[in-house]
């Protein structure tokens, strides 16, 4: 996994509330393997018409935001289905970080497991950043994991919370499965102390 310690990149605002994972990655593509990449499927029905024509109005299709690697989303972003394909589609599209007003719970934990930083900063901060981005399309933000903060030119520093374990993982690009395997002695001890086959 590619480490993210300090990321300075163009950001794109997507303030819509309840942008569920069906909209980020439509269910009809669920049987597709990732080998071909999901870049074209991210927000598929927002970006393209049924016959594949580009919808120029959608924010990701606006030239000023081309190459954005940070998504600044609204309330309850990526709620809905657990589909990890939504995380992969965002990564394949080029996003490295999602800053949202709030996040769907499953997405909030599965995104960082896949190397996509996802933080919730609350309504005030998220809306302030979105307004800055709308006022100055193409603006770059800096997400700093070391300092747990987001630098927004003209707005200052916005702090975010992230657990130590998750921060380490993202900063060093650690593989979550390998990290989990290091817990083996404690897992074995738990199993020895409990009837795990028939718990009560």
């Amino acid at each position: 996994m590619t480490p993210i310690d300090r990321l300075t990149a163009r950001a794109v605002p997507l303030p819509a509330a309840n942008m569920d994972t069906d909209q980020i990655f439509p269910a009809r593509y669920m049987s597709r393997p990732r080998s071909g990449g999901f870049a074209d499927l991210a927000f598929r029905d927002h970006r393209f018409t049924a016959d594949g024509a580009t919808k120029p109005d959608f924010v990701l299709n606006q030239p000023a935001y081309a190459g954005a690697r940070i998504l600044v989303a609204g309330k309850n972003f990526a709620c809905g289905s657990a589909r990890e394909q939504a995380v992969h589609a965002l990564l394949d599209y080029g996003f490295r970080a999602v800053i949202a007003e709030s996040l769907g719970d499953i997405f909030a934990s599965s995104a960082p497991e896949n190397g996509l930083l996802a933080v919730a900063v609350g309504p005030e901060a998220a809306q302030a950043i979105q307004q800055r981005l709308a006022a100055e399309p193409g603006l770059a933000l800096t997400v700093d994991l070391e300092r747990r903060s987001i630098e927004v030119p003209g707005l200052g520093m916005i702090a975010f919370a992230i657990s130590e374990r998750r921060r380490e993982m993202l900063m060093h690009g650690l593989d979550p499965l390998s990290q989990l395997l290091l817990m083996e002695p404690r897992i074995a001890a738990y199993e020895a102390a409990h009837d795990t086959a028939m718990p009560d």
């Binding site: 997405f107 497991e113 499965l177 989990l180 817990m183």
Partner: peptide, 11 residues
């Protein structure tokens, strides 16, 4: 997420 479930399969 599926990745977390892979972790559950393993651990």
């Amino acid at each position: 997420g599926a990745g977390e479930c892979a972790g559950v399969l393993a651990t």
